[in-house]
Design a binder for these strands. Structure first.
Lengths: 221, 221
DNA sequence: ATGTTCTTTTAGACATAGCTAAATCCGATT
DNA sequence: AATCGGATTTAGCTATGTCTAAAAGAACAT
C-alpha cells in the first residue's frame, strides 16, 4: 500500500549514502558537511537536500541541516548493501587488494540489479562483513552491530584481533597493511604515550606507533 | 601525441555501440534507424549525431546519416569488449542463463574500470567469444572474425555445430534454448521447405522447424 | 517536371545536477 | 542588544540528454 518507490538517481543514492555515514558518526548533517563529503559546492548541496526532502527521503530544516526519514534510511542501506557486497566479492573472487575494492565498488554499485545482487550474495555464502570489517546489511537491511571497541580501548599489554579498518582511503589502507593492521590480524597493545601521544602496537609486521586518532578508527576485539 | 580522449558519457557510448552494430549489418546508419535502435525520438538522435560529429567520433552528412571514424570505431569496440567480457563472466562465474546475461552486462558495462576489466579477462583465461558466440575484441581491440556461415548455408542432410545465436532478445533465446539451438550444440539440417518456407533442424531436443530468416541469424560450422 | 509524402532538422521546452556571485540568516562576541 | 563573520540560501547560468510541434529537405510517383 506504500507509495511505489521511483528509481532514485545515482546522485540521490550517493547523497543518501553520505548522509547515512555522517549520521552514523553522530555528526549533525549540515549543508557544509555534506558538500565537503560529496566534493560539491554548498549551493549544490542545498539544492539536493531540497530534492531529497521533496522525495520524502530526509527531513530538512532550513539552516539546520537534514536527517534521514525511515524511507531515506532504507534506501541508504540498500546502497550500502550493494557497495559492501561488491567489495566482498571483488576481494574474494577477483583478488582485489583491500585498498582497491572501495573505488571499484563505488563504480559498480549503481549498476547492480537486485537479481545479480542475490546471486552474488548466495555465491559468497551470505557474508556479514565487507573486507574492511564493515557490516553488510542483510536482505531485510538489518545490520549486525554489536557495540564496538577500538584499539584505544585495549589495555596496555593486552592482545586484540583487528576487526575493522577505515575504508575509502587507499593510501591509508596501504599504510595500515604495511603495519600488519588488517582485519583478522592480531595485535598487542604495547603502550600509550602520555599527554595524548601515540599508541604503540606490535603485529606480525613488528612494532609501530600510530596516532591516537588513527588508533580510535581501528576496531578490535 | 594524439588528442587525449575525454571520458565519453554513458549515452555517447551507447550510441556508438548502436552505430557500430548497424554498420556491421551493412545498413546505412540513418537518423531513424538509430532513433529506433536507441528507443528515442528522431530529434534526439539528430542532436546526438551532431554531438558525436563534434567529438570526432562520426562523420555526419545532414540528411544522409553517419559513419564511425577510426576513433569512433575504437571507442565502440571498447564498449563492446566490456559488454561481451561481462557476459562471459556472468555466464561462467555467476551462472546466469544465456537470456539473462545481455541485460545485466548492459547495466554493468559503463561501470567497469580498465583495471577490473583486465582482471576479469585474465581470470577467464582471455576468452575470445561471449556466451552468444559473438567475438570479444582483444586488448588491442582486434576482432577474430572468419567468414561465417549460417544454418541456411548448410546442405540438406548436413551436420553443423551452432556457433552463434542472436543476443539481446531474452524471449527468442529461451525459445532457441528449448529447441536445442545454443552455441556448442550440434544440429542436423533436415530440410528446406520450398518457396522460401521454413527450415527443419534436428537437435538433442528433437526436430523443429524455424523460419528461414531466423535460420540465417544462427551461425554454424 | 512537379507535387506529395516521408524523413530529417530546427525551435523551444523540461529535468537533473553542477557552478559562481550575491544576498540573507544565525550565532557568537562584545 | 547590536554587530560581525561564517554558514546557508537564493538567483541565475551551464551542460547533458530527452521531448513535442513545426519547418524544411529529399525522394518518389505521376
Amino acid at each position: 500500500m506504500g507509495t511505489q518507490a521511483p528509481d532514485l538517481t545515482v546522485a540521490v543514492q550517493d547523497y543518501l549514502k553520505a548522509i547515512y555515514t555522517l549520521e552514523s558518526s553522530r555528526e549533525r548533517v549540515t549543508t557544509s558537511a555534506l558538500a565537503s563529503r560529496m566534493g560539491v559546492s554548498a549551493p549544490s548541496a542545498t539544492a539536493m537536500t531540497k530534492r531529497l526532502a521533496e522525495l520524502g527521503l530526509v527531513e530538512r530544516a532550513p539552516y539546520r541541516g537534514v536527517a534521514l526519514t525511515d524511507e531515506g534510511r532504507r534506501s541508504a542501506l540498500e546502497v550500502l548493501r550493494h557497495h559492501r557486497l561488491l567489495e566482498r566479492y571483488l576481494a574474494d573472487r577477483l583478488g582485489l587488494a583491500l585498498d582497491e575494492v572501495h573505488a571499484e565498488a563505488e563504480l559498480l554499485e549503481h549498476a547492480l540489479s537486485e537479481e545479480l545482487e542475490a546471486k552474488i550474495d548466495a555465491e559468497l555464502g551470505y557474508p556479514t562483513h565487507d573486507p574492511h570489517g564493515d557490516p553488510i546489511p542483510d536482505r531485510e537491511l538489518q545490520l549486525s552491530h554489536g557495540s564496538e571497541q577500538t584499539l584505544i580501548d585495549v589495555e596496555p599489554g593486552g592482545r586484540a584481533m583487528i576487526t575493522r579498518v577505515p575504508d575509502g582511503d587507499p593510501e591509508l589502507l596501504r599504510y595500515l597493511d604495511g603495519l600488519g593492521l588488517v582485519p583478522g590480524s592480531d595485535a598487542v597493545l604495547v603502550s600509550f604515550a602520555p599527554f595524548g601521544g601515540p599508541v604503540t602496537v606490535r603485529t606480525d609486521a613488528g612494532e609501530h606507533a600510530i596516532s591516537r586518532e588513527l588508533a580510535d578508527r581501528i576496531a578490535a576485539t
